[in-house]
Design a protein around this nucleic acid. Structure first.
Lengths: 145, 145
DNA sequence: GATGCCGCGGTCGAGATTGTCCATCAGGCC
DNA sequence: GGCCTGATGGACAATCTCGACCGCGGCATC
C-alpha cells in the first residue's frame, strides 16, 4: 500500500471501469503493473468490490432518515447490533458521543415503510425513545448510494 | 427502465467491471445490446458513475461523525450544497425535518482532521452553530463503506 | 393495406484491452 | 560477488469494446 496504490484507488474511485492502460498513464506504470496491483488490492481485501452508483429516485428507495436512539440504563452494544441487523431498512448504525446512545440511518421506499421500520427498531429492549430527522433533499452524496 | 435494465444494474452493482458479454449472457442479450443500454443509463443519469469500495480501515478514514447544522434565517440549499461539496471529508449531507436544518456526515482520518473539516463546514454563511455526534463504534454497515 | 419512421436487438470486424508468460532490474542479505 | 525476492516492462494470444450496418415489429399516416 504505497502512493502508487493510493493513486490507482483514487482513479478507480472516479471511474471503476477505466482501463488498466489509462490508469497506468496517470500513475506512471504499465498496464500489466497496474493490473497486478489491482489484483493484489482485491486479493488483500483493500478493494472490496466494484460497484455502480444508481440514481436513488430510480430504484425507488428515496426516503431516508436519521434516527437517534435513546436507551434506558445500560446499553448492550451486541444486542443492539443484533436487533438493528434484523431490520433490513437499517443502512448504517453506530454508537455515538452526545446525549443519544446511537444513530441509525434508515432507508425505505416511502414514509409508511419508514414508519414500519422505525417501529421495528423501537422494539429493541431498553430503547426509551427515538428522535427522527427525515431527509428532505440530498445536498451531497459521495457514499455511493 | 425495464426489467432488463434492472437486471443489468443489479449485475453491475455486484461487479461494475464485468464485461458486457458476461452481463449479456446473464440477462439474455448480446454484448452490444448491453452496452447500448448501459450507455443510455449513463446518459440518462440513472447510473451516476462506477466506483470502487475500499476498506475504510486501510485508507485510514475511520473517524466518522454526524453533524447537525443550525442556520440563521433562510437557508439557500444551493449555496449550502456548494460549500459542503467543497469539503472532501463530507460524505453525505441533506436537509432534514426537525430543529436542525441539515445533517452532514463527515469522515476523516482522525480527530484533528475531523475538527479541521468541521471548521470548513462552519465557515458556510448563515451557519449559526453545529452539533456533532462522533461515532464510537459501528453497529451496522450495509452502505458499502 | 402500403409506406415510412422509430426503437430495439443481432451480427460483424477493426482496434483496444486484458491476462499471462518471461526477461530484466534494483535492493537486501550472506 | 552470488543469490534471492519482489516488482516492472514487453510481447503475445485471447478476449472485449464499440461503431456500422441490417432486420424486425409496432405505430402513425396516407
Amino acid at each position: 500500500m504505497d502512493n502508487l496504490d493510493r493513486g490507482i484507488i483514487d482513479l478507480l474511485r472516479q471511474n471503476a471501469r477505466a482501463s488498466y492502460g489509462d490508469i497506468g498513464v496517470e500513475v506512471g506504470l504499465s498496464a500489466s503493473a497496474v493490473k497486478r496491483r489491482v489484483d493484489r488490492l482485491v486479493a488483500d481485501k483493500v478493494i472490496r468490490g466494484f460497484t455502480v452508483q444508481v440514481d436513488p429516485n430510480v430504484d425507488g428507495m428515496q426516503t431516508e432518515a436519521y434516527v437517534e436512539l435513546f436507551c434506558r440504563g445500560t446499553v448492550a452494544p451486541d444486542e443492539l447490533r443484533r436487533i438493528l441487523q434484523g431490520v433490513p431498512e437499517v443502512v448504517d448504525a453506530g454508537t455515538v458521543t452526545g446525549s443519544a446512545d446511537a444513530i441509525v440511518r434508515i432507508r425505505s421506499r416511502d414514509i409508511p415503510s419508514l414508519e414500519a421500520a422505525l417501529e421495528k427498531v423501537r422494539i429493541a429492549p431498553n430503547v426509551d425513545h427515538t428522535r427522527s430527522a427525515i431527509i428532505l433533499s440530498k445536498l451531497v452524496n459521495r457514499s455511493g448510494d
